[in-house]
Structures are given as C-alpha cells and as structure tokens.
C-alpha cells in the first residue's frame, strides 16, 4: 500500500521528514500537560522536600538547618494530637459516609419505577452544588449552643438534657466535625455506589432472587463483595480527604477547644500563613505525604488481594 501511495504522489517529500512529523506529534500534544505537571506538581514537591530542611520564612531567610524542623514537630504535642485526631476523624467519617451512602444507594436501587428512581437520584445529588464553605457555615449555626437546630430539636422532643455545646467542648468537638454533612447522601460515595449497583449484571440479581435470597442476604452476599472495588475507592478518597481537611478548622474551631480539633492540614496552613514558618510547614507536608503514601499502599493491597475481577 505504501509503495502505491508514493508512486502516485506528485509532490516529492523525503521519507525521513514524513516519519519525523508523525512520530513527534503525540509528544507535542503531551507537552502542555507535562509542563503543568512539572511546574505545579513535581517542582513544588521537590522544593518542599528541600525546604523542609531549612528555616525558610517565605521571604528572605533560607538557611539549612538539617532535621530541626522534624524534631520540633515531633516534640510539639499539638502536632502529635493532630495526627491522633486525624485517625479518629477519618475513621469516624469514613465509616459513617460509607454506611449511609451505601444504605441510600441500596434504597434507590430497590425502587422499581424508573421515573421515581430518577427523581430521588436527582433530589439526593442536587445539594452537591452547595459550596463546602457554605455547608460549614450552615453547620456553625446548626451547632449553635443557644439557637442551633440540634439543641432546639432535642429540646422539642423532650431530650433537653442532651443539649450540648457541640463545638464548645473537647469531648464532642471532633465528633461534631466528623458529623458535618450527615446524612452523607449528597456525596461522591453515593454516586459511586448507585452507579456500581446499577452496573451489577441484572441476571446475577435475578439469580439471587430466584434462589430465594432475601434482600438482606443478597446485599451481604452479593452486593457488598461485588462492590468491593467501589467501596475501597471511596474509602481511599475519604482517607486522603481527611488528611487534607482544613475547612472546619478555618471556618469553625481553629483547632480548639484545646487541641481536640487539630488536624495535620490545618496545622500546616497555620504554620505557613499565620506563623510564617514555611520551612517547618514543608516538613509537615513531607510527613503528610509519607502518611498518605502508606495509606494508599495499604488500600491498594486490600483492593487487589484475592480480587475476583482483576488478574
């Protein structure tokens, strides 16, 4: 074929030039992406690794101080508390989100009428357009100890004794933050679970039905194992999100009361922008990167260990 084409061509183009153009074009298209990745992702990451060993203040100071930043961090009880809090906050939130989003997805999945199902899917998903900061500000008022929705509701149903200053004491503050967004149906997790459930082969569901499986048995023996990929994916996202959470602290608690709502990402923000200690903030970032990598590795191992759908 190639020889025919060249015979018929009236313009003689040297073969080498032709090949050069066609081979390099894909790389030209990749160039902008590569540039963005290098400039905004890789260079700052390596820069952070370097600066974590300095006393950089964002302007003039930039002297090498070895591992001092790291030793200061590990000697700071606020930093240690932040990681303990992160473990608690992330576990609580991950379990809660997975549970409620899964329940909501199963409820939607069990609706037979196509139109009704679509209506509820849209109803659940529309609140996603509300920006997160707005959600946190709303919950500030929900948790208000005097006029907040929760305390007022408890009062109305006769459980006035259970009223608390939810954000105002160490024992409840972190849990209160983890609870923000309840019932977690307007979430990515919900969307993924609904899509995964709807993606289950219909005849498997029907087989389960034929075999006399009650809905609970089916959910436990069929839905959950087959959704494993989706569940792990959402769990990883939630864990990484917990690692990067700063909004509740910036908007609500500033890490208090005490250190009960300190989280690593907020610690980083404050160290950099309030204290001006960019070098130490880089050290925090390096630690967070390490933790994130460990979590990801564990999740990957969990996901692919004796997975039935991947070789």
């Amino acid at each position: 074929m190639t020889s025919v084409a060249i015979e018929q061509a009236s313009v003689s183009v040297p073969r080498s030039r032709l090949r050069l153009t066609s081979r390099w074009v894909p790389f030209l298209f990749l160039l902008p992406v590569a540039a963005e990745l290098i400039i905004f992702r890789y260079i700052p990451t390596f820069s952070a690794f370097y600066h974590s060993l300095t006393n950089w203040d964002g302007r003039k100071k930039d002297a090498f101080i070895g591992f001092k930043n790291f030793t200061d961090l590990f000697n700071d009880n606020v930093f240690r508390d932040a990681f303990v809090n992160m473990a608690k906050y992330t576990s609580l939130r991950t379990i809660a989100v997975l549970l409620f989003a899964f329940i909501a997805a199963e409820l939607i999945f069990s609706i037979r009428n196509e139109r009704v199902r679509m209506f509820w899917k849209i109803a659940f998903v529309i609140p996603l357009v509300v920006p997160r900061s707005v959600i946190y500000l709303m919950w500030a008022f929900i948790y208000d100890p005097q006029v907040g929705l929760i305390n007022e509701a408890l009062n109305l149903i006769g459980l006035g004794a259970w009223q608390q200053p939810w954000l105002g004491q160490s024992s409840t503050a972190l849990g209160a933050l983890a609870f923000i967004g309840f019932p977690f149906v307007s979430s990515l997790a919900f969307l993924i679970f609904v899509a995964s459930l709807e993606g289950l082969p219909r005849d498997i569901i029907e087989t389960a039905q034929l075999e006399g499986c009650s809905i609970w048995k089916r959910i436990w023996n069929v839905d959950l194992p087959m959704l494993r990929g989706g569940i792990v994916f959402v769990a990883v996202l939630l864990i990484l999100e917990g690692l990067q959470t700063t909004e509740p602290q910036l908007i609500l608690t500033r890490g208090g009361p005490g250190t009960s709502t300190e989280l690593p990402a907020y610690y980083l923000y404050r160290t950099a922008f309030d204290y001006g200690k960019f070098g130490q903030a880089c050290a925090v970032g390096v630690v967070m990167l390490g933790v994130g990598l460990i979590f990801t590795a564990i999740s990957m191992w969990l996901r692919y260990r004796s997975a039935y759908d991947v070789d």
């Binding site: 208000d144 100890p145 005097q146 608390q164 200053p165 954000l167 105002g168 908007i251 609500l252 009361p257």
Partner: peptide, 10 residues
C-alpha cells in the same frame, strides 16, 4: 459568659 462560648465561631 454565654453557654457554649467555646463553640461559637465568629
């Protein structure tokens, strides 16, 4: 101080 003063954010 008002009750829950530590949980008031602004």
């Amino acid at each position: 101080l008002v009750e829950g003063f530590a949980g008031i954010t602004s």
